[in-house]
Design a protein around this nucleic acid. Sequence first.
DNA 1: ATGGTTGCTTAGCAA
Length: 257
Amino acid sequence: MLVATWNVNSIRARYERLSRWLSSHQPDVLCLQEVKVEEKAFPFEAIREAGYNVEVFGQRTYNGVAILAKGEMTEVQKGFPKDAFDDQARFIAAKVNGVRVVSIYVPNGKVVGSESYEYKLRWLFQLKRFLEESEISSGDIIVCGDLNIAPNPGDVARPQQWEGSVLYNPEMRSEFTELLALGLADTIGKRFPDGGIYSWWDYQQLGFQLGNGLRIDHILASRGLAVRCTDAGVDREERKGKLPSDHAPVWAMFETT
DNA sequence: ATGGTTGCTTAGCAA
């Protein structure tokens, strides 16, 4: 089973790239973030014609997450349960092939100490609560998405420049450790223990052109699933060429039982 | 070099 996650930064702007990527890589599951469109304007038909079922938690202009899957999706959940504080579309989950798949877009946080950063911390608290209640040890679960956290020094091309940013600071590294402690494994991190693998390059700072990347998109798998991970990586090629997303697709292959 | 880009929506915000 090939599982992938990709922050497309607008599905309408990225539709041709997405369509090509689906047909060339044939993932069984693709989690999307920042689709930036309401459900009524989502390109359902075209994606179904490409052979995928789709579940979308859409939003106008900002955010928006989705799950594409070849298999049938059940138990779809949009947003955290009994979610009082969050009006932003950043969480969707569904069961596919017996695996609970979660597609998330964690808030960026702007600047440490800002209102946005506080929101990021509250959101991560909700995520941890959801995962605690998911009884990770009793079934396969996979958490995919733009976590807006680079967990290790090797996940940042220029760690000195980024230290203290909302993406890379001790508090965020601790948040990531807490997520793993709930029973998840960092599939890409395990595949590349020496780091040097990035998934996002800033448009503004010409990050890709300057080799200034960070690994902030992740595929976290429950332990039982993680031991069946045969390979994982980032499709860096997708960041090249005309009008790419600022994020590249991240993928992990699992042995099917 | 304290800049630079992109997307949505339409001048300002978010990343």
